[in-house]
Design a protein around this nucleic acid. Structure first.
Lengths: 161, 161
DNA sequence: ATGACTGCAAAGCCTTTGCACGCAA
DNA sequence: TTGCGTGCAAAGGCTTTGCAGTCAT
């Protein structure tokens, strides 16, 4: 079994949706406040990222920007994503496909988790308040200072089962 | 921030504990039943693996076996772990450190989840029946045929916070 | 004897880093 | 002008693969 991604776009984010302007502004102002200077490349990455609300990889973003004729160097994509993660504007999620993916952090605090098909790699997001409460309780009981959590369900999607 | 592991043994499994004979026998018989033939290298890997009850990487196992003067080629370690995963004797867990780790699957079905320190990389296991019930409920409600789940809490360990 | 398994080395892939150039402030 | 930011290419690190030799059956 190969769990490394192949050449093509990952199944994580097949489509590029409309950019989330609100999030972009939130992100850009946070970035500015953190002392970073303004640049086209960074804005491109932030906007490309803001078209997603579920896990995307750096390589996906690179491909999308190239397709839109606003190419940004791969290294820069990684650097910007790293900065976003540092500023808590992005969370790294690791769905187990061997490559890092990220998703935007909503200021509202709302977030979701992932169901991954072990056959086709399809990823669906889900939310569940009860589960969320349970995780929050466990986090509070822990001796760690928990700031984040990740839940992944694995199985076969309707089509593959 | 570098999230790739460095050269040394990962913090995931600092010590090699006593081998779990019971699990080894369970594994070896399952492997045999699956049609694989007997070999020293495979047995070594299975035994090394059976010394762990939390996440270990292929490279950890390679190092441990070499330290025990029973070296097994890296490629073989990966191949055996892959076979174990296929036979559901091991689960791949992805704690987000950029390398794949595995843990033995207990026939009893008991399992735990992980708390990862985002500063030092320390990984603690935890169990929580209430959380487990919530995940099970969500899994059942999903349209996927869920066979497995993974929960990761991230934050700062007592020493780092 | 036949096919499976191992070890070694090379290749692949994702990610990071070094460095020279360009741009923001 | 100063130094941050970018692009390119090379290096790093984990994982996989090809192949020849060895071992189980």
């Amino acid at each position: 079994m190969s769990w490394l991604a192949d050449q093509g776009p990952s199944t994580i984010s097949p489509i590029a949706a409309k950019v989330n302007r609100e999030w972009v502004e939130h992100a850009l102002s946070t970035i500015k406040a953190a002392g970073y200077q303004k640049s086209d490349a960074r804005r491109e990455v932030v906007e490309a990222f803001a078209r997603h609300d579920c896990a995307v990889t750096a390589l996906d973003l690179e491909r999308e920007m190239r397709a839109r004729k606003s190419p940004v160097a791969r290294a820069t994509v990684y650097r910007v994503l790293e900065q976003l993660a540092e500023l808590e504007l992005a969370h790294r999620v690791d769905v187990g496909l061997g490559l890092a993916s990220f998703e935007p952090v909503m200021p509202s605090g709302e977030h979701h988790h992932h169901i991954v098909c072990r056959s086709c790699g399809r990823i669906d997001p889900f939310e569940d308040p009860g589960l969320e409460r349970a995780v929050t309780r466990v986090s509070a009981e822990s001796r760690f200072a928990i700031s984040d959590h990740e839940i992944i369900l694995r199985g076969l999607c309707p089509r593959c089962s």
